[in-house]
Design a protein around this nucleic acid. Structure first.
Lengths: 359, 359
DNA sequence: CATTGATATGAATCCTACG
DNA sequence: ACGTAGGATTCATATCAAT
């Protein structure tokens, strides 16, 4: 398999067979929406007598749990091999299958980072009044192993959530309206198309611009469409010709965004430049005062980059924590100073130094 | 074991050993809050330097998944034996353990009715910003097997939810404030005490007044307290003397409610009396007219309890459906008639006939 | 054009007692 | 076990027709 040619393309054929052809440690992120093995029987009638058209596809039929487990064990094992050491994987499912999936993933060696609940405000009701309305699905987000340094764009997601850290429960509507792909007769092309907002959260939170994202159950290509939107690369695997046809047309029409969200600017680490280096480069001066943002407290900067406070020599971090009556704090955001007649944060001087290539 | 003496008491000792002593098909409902096997290491520090006091109890320690699985397989197997054929079981867990529990339950033969998400509006935040805030736990609600006629008080729960059918996602605050049991030093007695509102939903939805409820991990007795409140019987199993002491004191102080909720009045089936029987008993008369509630449409009642509409002889259900342009409908609620100079629903006549003991 | 109301539909383990 | 008849059940949203 040519490793470059498969980027941003859909491989047609059997999922496990094609996964086996992809090299080790190749992708940054995997999103998998496997068959749920729903085990429904007969028709479900609404109270008005119409038939509810749910999932009745051949691809969702298995003989029993044993066969389903074996299938999942195999594709999940291949996915783990393909995943880069610091990559991560999302798998979506419902109560019919997700407990089997989760147990298998833990056994294989995946490390669960979160289980995320997709809460649907407009889920299908329970027509017969026989149980609680099943109004959610579950996503498992896992690292390749416990030690892996997976990607999580914490600040980006916090920013998207009104500056509160994002929770493990996501309220997202099901895929309906214009977003739902229909054929020439107006029938839905895929019985389980996922909403783009769901993939938007998944991809934006756990990958970087330019990353490679694999979807082994590509369907009508929601993963590919959102990957392109967010300037990530995708690899799709899908068996059905019809799904592929609609997916390709759909992705072709997507325009890539270019925004601070796409680049995860909020989560990009600041340049690694120390206070000592800022002194050496002339952005700070030995003996000057550093202030808090309100200009009400000050400390003295020493020539080794530490600061003097209450006759103690401390790092900017410990000093700011002391002033805030905390144990730890980020001094880069706390301390401000005069620079070229402006009052700026010392953190901004790091970006300035980095930009000027003084290092 | 004396079967009557264990009602509304706490059995002290090893969970599996004590479960083995309980007879087959003995309880109506089980609520289980087993150890989660959290696998946490070291201390978690808040940014203010204080230590977050999570679960660090001996009872949550296991050597590995294999040991944990074996433990769960055993207590879940005993619970299934103890459950009445139409009984059901709730198990609560988090992502660390619930996937193992769910898979084991399916393998044993339990049939998942719902998985319910307990969404916590006031969950512990993620202090390190390394993942999504883990703001939910998962409950598995299962029948003894696929064919079992489990109890679900659909209308009661719908009533509690502003007359919309209750969803699989429940917003409930974690157990804090006065509800949280503290020792004489003000420290929490149990590290994972569950909120009573959670047990209230569990017990009210899936049991009847007077039922027997078993909790094999009784802790400080939330299940017992809510069972007593709702006039159900409980059996607790707990190893720790301290927990038992607080649980007994707590339950002693609970006053049983007596309300239509406790009795699940909304879900009590109406008396099984047919229209034919109502005619025979004199509550309805052959040849009289039945109307819709607005008195705008009428059908003729025949001597066999069926009605005449458009020259067709139909059951009250099919006739009402026809008038509503539906396939099925409940005729008892649809049709009204004159009775003792009052305009009443024919359903109310069933209750009247039942009350008068005419049958 | 704005508003109202009828209709359609979505990953669903969707009835029960009796003969 | 299986068929049959009786009886009990739906929420949010999009679309489109009607006013």
């Amino acid at each position: 398999m040519n490793e470059k040619n498969i980027l941003n393309s859909i491989l047609q054929g059997d999922c496990i067979k094609l996964l086996k052809e992809i090299p080790d440690n190749f992708v940054d992120l995997i999103f998998a929406d496997p068959p749920y093995y729903m085990q429904t029987e007969g028709n479900l009638l609404r109270t008005d007598g119409t038939i509810f058209s749910g999932v009745n596809d051949e691809w969702d039929k298995f003989e029993n749990f044993e066969h389903y487990d074996k299938f999942c064990y195999e594709w999940l094992t291949e996915c783990r091999r393909i995943l880069k050491p610091n990559g991560s994987i999302w798998v979506i499912g419902s109560f019919q299958n997700i407990y089997r999936i989760g147990k298998i993933m833990q056994d294989i060696g995946y490390w669960i980072i979160n289980d995320v609940i997709w809460a649907k405000p407009n889920a299908v009701p329970n027509f017969a009044g026989t149980r609680f309305q099943n109004s959610h699905e579950t996503l498992l987000w896992c690292a390749k192993d416990k030690k892996s340094k997976y990607c999580f764009n914490y600040k980006t997601m916090k920013h998207l959530n009104s500056d509160k850290q994002m929770k493990s429960v996501w309220d997202i509507s099901i895929c309906i309206g214009n977003e739902r792909i229909k054929d020439e007769n107006g029938n839905k092309v895929h019985s389980t198309q996922k909403p783009e907002k769901l993939l938007y959260n998944v991809i934006l939170s756990s990958s970087k611009k330019g990353d490679i994202i694999l979807d082994p159950f590509f369907g009508t290509g929601t993963t590919g469409a959102v990957a392109k939107l967010l300037s990530r690369n995708y690899i799709g695997i899908e068996r059905e010709t019809t799904y592929i046809k609609y997916a390709e047309e759909r992705i072709k029409n997507v325009q890539s965004e270019d925004s601070y969200l796409v680049s995860n600017t909020l989560d990009v680490k600041p340049p690694k430049i120390s206070t000592k280096q800022l002194i050496d480069l002339g952005f700070l001066k030995d003996g000057q005062l550093l202030y808090d943002k309100t200009h009400s407290k000050s400390v003295l900067l020493l020539n080794d980059g530490k600061v003097l406070i209450d006759n103690e020599k401390l790092s900017i971090h410990k000093a700011s924590a002391l002033l805030l009556n905390k144990v730890n704090n980020n001094g880069w955001d706390f301390f401000w100073c005069e620079y070229n007649n402006e009052f700026v944060s010392i953190n901004s001087l790091r970006y300035l130094a980095d930009k000027k290539g003084g290092l």
